[in-house]
Amino acid sequence: MSDDIIIRIRDLKTAYGDHVVHEHLDLDIRKGEIIGVIAPSGGGKSVLLRAIIGLKQPAAGSIEVFGKQLETLSEDQRSEVERRWGVMFQDGALFSNLTVRENVMVPMREHTNLSEQLSRELADMKILMAGLQPDAGPKYPSDLSGGMRKRAALARALALDPELLFLDEPTAGLDPITAAAFDQLIRSLQKAMGLTVFLVTHDVDTLNATCDRIAVLGDKHVLAVGTIDELRAFDHPWVQEYFGGPRGRAATGH
């Protein structure tokens, strides 16, 4: 059973100076699930994501991804791990001096021996898979709308067929229809490619539509992990308000 756990966080502590963001945080993420992470604003969702992918050095505790602790790995082993995941940042973080297609080709150029022609074809396919029009490839990120930029960022995150996908606020700033389409896209990609998805979000609709399990962060650690129904029964004022509030009720149909 332990082999099924793809990310294992134990007793994590992260801090910026004196400001402690997480303390004694434990979380397991299983292979093949979509896990949503919710927290109040400023509750450390994005920091947790940054800690897992190694952009933020934890102050204490351990994070194992694919059974390996990132800090203990050599440069090469680390890049080996890094190419098994894809990350989509909150506002895309596309390279603005490259076209969308070149953005998607960057990881292929870095990590594979694919020829220019084949990687171009594959990039075009990823762009289509992410739900963009075929003519989006030669455009620059500044020519795209917010929703298209997110799709392009998703295409780049998927470039190497990762086993693990990190999404930071994938639907923030999108209109409800686009957001719903994005939820569906994540779900169908997850099914097709057998992905494990780590999703940071504020959006109750996204949680409801995509996530297998939800982790609630609060008071610097994980308050609860479970399905949306389990969480609704969970006795904590913030969780109750989150799912019991007008938006939460509307989204989950209660």
Partner: peptide
């Protein structure tokens, strides 16, 4: 295990006319 599903997914998205450049 996955071939059928993956190939049909890929087939579906790439089944478009190449835009003329």
């Amino acid at each position: 295990s996955v071939a059928d599903n993956l190939i049909s997914q890929v087939h579906a998205v790439t089944d478009v006319e190449e835009p003329k450049r």
